[in-house]
Amino acid sequence: MSSDLRHNWLVRGVAAVGECGLFFVAVAGAVPKSLRYWRELCRQIWFVGAMSLVIVMTCGLFVGMVLALQLYFTLSIFGGTAALGTVVALSLFRELGPVVTALLVAGRAGTAVTAEIGLMRATDQLDAISMMAVDPLAYVASPRFLAGVIAMPLLACVFNAMGIFGGHLVGVTWLGLDNGTFWGNMTSTVDLYRDILDGLYKSIVFGGVVSLIAVFQGYTAPPTSEGVAYSTTRTVVFSSIVVLAFDFVMTAFMT
């Protein structure tokens, strides 16, 4: 490869995507072996899932409140405020729940995973694990990847529940919409398979994407403080772009 070609950002970008793809194959291949380290997996689920609950619940509440406020005044123009519960729930289940949760998890847990693995690389801990005849992919990478896949849909459910609660607070408690209308229209319109499960499928994919990017960036971080800092930033940037791009593609296929 010529020097000019190697310094071309497009070529480097394609090479990085290919490298990430190969890394995914290696991490996925190490998943069966990683189940042996179930304690580590539980620890990571706790870290990615339980430790993200506060930010996810808080953001879910406010997103639901803002959504209800905006939609109430928009729907009132057309005399359709009775559909507030339905629209809030559909927006959350189909789009906002999975997407915003993924962005929040990328910012809170993804960066922490990248920094942790990057520092493990910089301080030879990954080499030490390998030298003790333990596969670092199975012990370090796969549990963190799996934890993201497992925790993300659960967090999205919590986000959705808090969002609907926030929508109810604004729509019913504050703006005076009828409680029965709010819940009745929502439960009769929202479909378990088409709306709720589709949103969950998205969350599972986003969980995989965000945790793969976080683990990959940590694993390939240059072993310097600057290198770890850049990789941590890249985790947030790449995760956000890829989540939104995947969301569009998946929505296109699901609708």
């Binding site: 493990m120 301080t123 030879d124 801990q125 080499d127 030490a128 694990i129 390998s130 030298m131 003790m132 005849a133 333990v134 596969d135």
Partner: peptide, 23 residues
């Protein structure tokens, strides 16, 4: 192979320059 390498490493102790303790 990877497996053979890990079998060999089980029989080798390695003291790293910067200790490399699991933090």
């Amino acid at each position: 192979s990877r497996r053979g390498l890990f079998e060999l490493r089980e029989r080798i102790g390695f003291l790293f320059q910067n200790s490399a303790l699991l933090t």
